[in-house]
C-alpha cells in the first residue's frame, strides 16, 4: 500500500495540472486562441496521426537528431579518448577545440544557412556541433581521471595497450562519458528545435511554425509536448543504458 502511494506520488502534480487546465479551458476561463484544452490537443494529435503527417515529421526530426548525435558525438568521443591517452594529440588539438568552444553553436545559424542553405546538412551540422563539446569534454575528463593505480596494475600484469584500454581505461571513463551523453541529448533536441523553427520544410519545428501561420494553436501545443516526450524518451534510454553498463557501480547496485 505504501509502495503504491510512493510510485503514484510523482504523477500527482502533473495530473492535477492537466485536470485544472481542462476544467479552466472548458469553463472558458482560458481563451482557445491562447491555450486550447487538453482534449483539443489530443484531437489534433489524432487528426495528424491519421493523416500520417505527424509520423513523417517525428521521423524526420528524430533522424536529424540521431544523425547529428552520431557524427558530433562520435568525433567528440574519439577525440576525447585520443587526447586523454596521448599528450601529443592533446597539445595539437585541445587549444583549438577550447577556442571553438567559446562560440555558442547557435550563433552559427546565419553562417550555416549561408553555407548549406536550409537542407538537411545545415540542421545535422548544428546538432553535431552542439553535442560535440559535452561528449568531448566528459570523455577527456573520464579518461584523465582513470585511477593511475589500476593502470599501473594492468601494465604490471602484462596487459597490452589494447587490453588496457578495453579493460581499464574505457570502463573507468564510462561514468563520466554517460554524464556527457545525457547532457548532449538535451542539447541535441534544443538545437534541432531552434534550427527547425528557423528554417525547415519538414520536421516537428516546421509543423509548429506552419501551424502558427494558420493559427492552429492546438498543433503548436502538440508539437511542444512531442518535443518534451522525445527528450524524456532519449534521457530514459540513456539512463537505461547507463544502468546496464554500470551495474558494477555501488550507486547502481543497490537500486
Amino acid at each position: 500500500m505504501r509502495l503504491e502511494l510512493k510510485s503514484v506520488l510523482p504523477f500527482l502534480i502533473p495530473a492535477g495540472l492537466i485536470v485544472l487546465w481542462q476544467v479552466l479551458a472548458s469553463a472558458g476561463e482560458i481563451s482557445q486562441s491562447v491555450l486550447p484544452a487538453p482534449t483539443q490537443v489530443v484531437a489534433a494529435g489524432w487528426r495528424l496521426a491519421l493523416s500520417g503527417e505527424l509520423w513523417a515529421n517525428i521521423w524526420i526530426s528524430t533522424w536529424r537528431a540521431l544523425t547529428g548525435l552520431a557524427i558530433g558525438g562520435g568525433i567528440g568521443f574519439a577525440l576525447g579518448l585520443a587526447n586523454g591517452a596521448s599528450k601529443l594529440s592533446e597539445r595539437l588539438t585541445d587549444p583549438s577545440l577550447q577556442m571553438i568552444r567559446t562560440i555558442p553553436h547557435l550563433a552559427m545559424i546565419p553562417l550555416v544557412i549561408l553555407w548549406f542553405g536550409i537542407d538537411e546538412t545545415a540542421k545535422i551540422f548544428l546538432v553535431a556541433l552542439g553535442v560535440f563539446f559535452p561528449i568531448y569534454l566528459n570523455t577527456l575528463h573520464g579518461v584523465r581521471t582513470v585511477d593511475d593505480q589500476l593502470v599501473e596494475m594492468g601494465r604490471a600484469y602484462g596487459m597490452s595497450p589494447a587490453t588496457l584500454f578495453a579493460k581499464v581505461v574505457l570502463p573507468g571513463a564510462l561514468p563520466s562519458i554517460f554524464v556527457g551523453l545525457r547532457y548532449a541529448l538535451g542539447i541535441m533536441w534544443l538545437t534541432l528545435i531552434v534550427a527547425e523553427t528557423i528554417s525547415a520544410s519538414s520536421g516537428l519545428g516546421y509543423m509548429a511554425m506552419n501551424a502558427r501561420e494558420f493559427m492552429l494553436v492546438d498543433v503548436v501545443v502538440l508539437a511542444i509536448l512531442i518535443y518534451a516526450a522525445l527528450g524524456k524518451l532519449a534521457d530514459s534510454g540513456a539512463k537505461l543504458l547507463e544502468r546496464a553498463t554500470l551495474s558494477w557501480h555501488p550507486a547502481y547496485v543497490s537500486r
Binding site: M153, Y157, M159, H249
Partner: peptide
C-alpha cells in the same frame, strides 16, 4: 600492492583472470 587494486567493473573471477 598495498591496495587490492581490483577492477571495480569486473566480477571477482574476472579480476583474477587478469593474472
Amino acid at each position: 600492492f598495498q591496495e587490492p587494486r581490483l577492477l571495480p567493473w569486473a566480477r571477482i573471477v574476472d579480476n583474477v583472470r587478469v593474472g
